[in-house]
Design a protein around this nucleic acid. Structure first.
Lengths: 158, 158
DNA sequence: ACAAACCCTACTTAGCTGATGGAGTAAATT
DNA sequence: AATTTACTCCATCAGCTAAGTAGGGTTTGT
């Protein structure tokens, strides 16, 4: 199927970055761009779209920059994915956020394919809408601490 | 995200069509094309690809046509989707059929995003690889019989 | 030989993705 | 008020893919 777009992947990285620094005041686009290796102008578009959708806030001029508007635990993967990659469903006729009938389906109530595609959509949405940026960060920490235990030489040991 | 391609949707329709007629000898491309409203030349490409992947068989010349090579219960949605739309995973780093590392991920064992994208992949693959053309057809019949019960005027009542 | 029917290669068109460039606007500092 | 710092907006571009079209070529049955 199709893979997540670069925009979505960059957006997720940017959100994690901002979440980690959310008590340090506004973050500059250029800092984020350099640290995360995201093309500067492309990143601008992404942050702007996140702002226009209420996920980020920005401040212009000296001392300005970007910051989270919502708490990391209130930003779901589903929101971000839908914003940049559109509906989660594999067929428009099973989409909740962007329903559209299939052009040649004479009766979708009876379509067997639709039934299973709806199961896929529901399973996917359950995960994406049930996982937040906070979950992603804590999962990363958990994975790091586990790895530190199994190979103590890395210097991450607790 | 991305929706299933027309090719995949046409392929699924064609397979159901062939499954329903699997005891009636080879089916002509032109019959399938007309009955299912699939552009003739486009359908040729699709059937050919299904044949080259061992799902269909064909016979040339007069009296020829297409037929299933495998039983309907041995053709999964996952096979068809992967054939025409590529891997099921949302990121290459969680794909089983087409693994590739993410270019800028310094350590994927510790990537929180990857963890949840793998959950999505597994949930999706479980459904798509666990559902066959036979399942789709019997689900259609079940839905039809249910609808007939609730609205007897349609003429489908059992 | 002839016609039926699948096989193969190439092409076209439109739309999207990822990215870039440059001018505009707002805020803080001097 | 001028200057600097940063975000904002608009326009453009190259490359790619999906969907479909075109036109022969090859095989088979009668």
């Amino acid at each position: 199927m199709r893979v997540l777009s670069q925009k979505t992947k960059y957006a997720l990285r940017a959100l994690q970055y901002l979440a980690l620094r959310r008590h340090e005041g506004p973050v500059l686009i250029s800092d984020l761009s350099e640290d995360e290796k995201i093309p500067r102008k492309f990143l601008e578009l992404i942050l702007l779209e996140l702002k226009n959708n209420g996920i980020l806030q920005s401040k212009k001029g000296k001392g300005g920059g970007y910051a989270l508007r919502k708490a990391p635990a209130e930003i779901t993967l589903g929101q971000v994915v839908r914003l940049f990659d559109g509906p989660v469903a594999l067929m428009p006729c099973v989409s909740e956020s962007a329903y559209a009938p299939c052009p040649e389906c004479h009766d979708e109530a009876v379509c067997g394919t639709r039934f299973f595609m709806k199961e896929v959509r529901d399973a996917t949405a359950k995960i994406l809408d049930g996982t937040t940026i906070a979950d992603v960060l804590s999962r990363s920490q958990l994975l790091e601490s586990k790895r530190a235990l199994s190979s103590p030489a890395t210097g991450y040991q607790i």
